[in-house]
Amino acid sequence: MTGELLDLMAADLDAIFELGGVDEPVEYIPGDVLLESVTLIGMYDEAYQEVDPHSRMPIGSTGPAVHLRSADLPEYPAETDRLVIRSRTFRITLPKPAGQGMTTFLLHEVSA
Score class of each variant (00 low, 15 high):
Glu24Tyr: 04
Glu24Leu: 01
Glu24Pro: 02
Glu24Gln: 05
Glu24Ser: 09
Glu27Val: 12
Glu27Lys: 01
Glu27Tyr: 05
Tyr28Leu: 06
Tyr28Gln: 00
Ile29Arg: 03
Ile29His: 00
Pro30Thr: 01
Gly31Thr: 00
Gly31Glu: 04
Asp32Cys: 05
Asp32His: 03
Asp32Tyr: 03
Val33Asn: 14
Leu34Pro: 00
Leu34Ile: 02
Leu35Asp: 09
Glu36Pro: 04
Val38Cys: 06
Thr39Gly: 01
Thr39Glu: 09
Leu40Glu: 08
Leu40Met: 09
Leu40Cys: 04
Ile41Asn: 11
Ile41Asp: 06
Ile41Ser: 15
Gly42His: 05
Gly42Cys: 06
Gly42Gln: 03
Met43His: 09
Met43Glu: 10
Met43Val: 11
Met43Lys: 13
Tyr44Pro: 09
Tyr44Phe: 15
Tyr44Cys: 03
Tyr44Lys: 07
Asp45Gly: 14
Ala47Lys: 13
Tyr48Thr: 08
Gln49Asp: 04
Gln49Trp: 04
Glu50Ala: 03
Glu50Thr: 05
Val51Tyr: 05
Val51Glu: 03
Asp52Lys: 05
Asp52Glu: 13
Pro53Asp: 14
Pro53Arg: 12
Ser55Trp: 02
Arg56Lys: 14
Arg56Tyr: 03
Arg56Ala: 12
Met57His: 10
Met57Gly: 06
Met57Ile: 10
Pro58Met: 10
Ile59Cys: 11
Ile59Met: 15
Gly60Val: 15
Gly60Thr: 12
Ser61Glu: 15
Thr62Pro: 03
Thr62Ile: 14
Thr62Arg: 11
Gly63Lys: 08
Pro64Asn: 08
Pro64Glu: 05
Pro64Gln: 09
Ala65Pro: 09
Val66Phe: 06
Val66Cys: 08
Val66Met: 06
His67Ser: 11
Leu68Met: 12
Arg69Ile: 15
Arg69Tyr: 03
Ser70Phe: 09
Leu73Ile: 08
Leu73Trp: 01
Leu73His: 00
Pro74Cys: 04
Glu75Ala: 05
Glu75Lys: 09
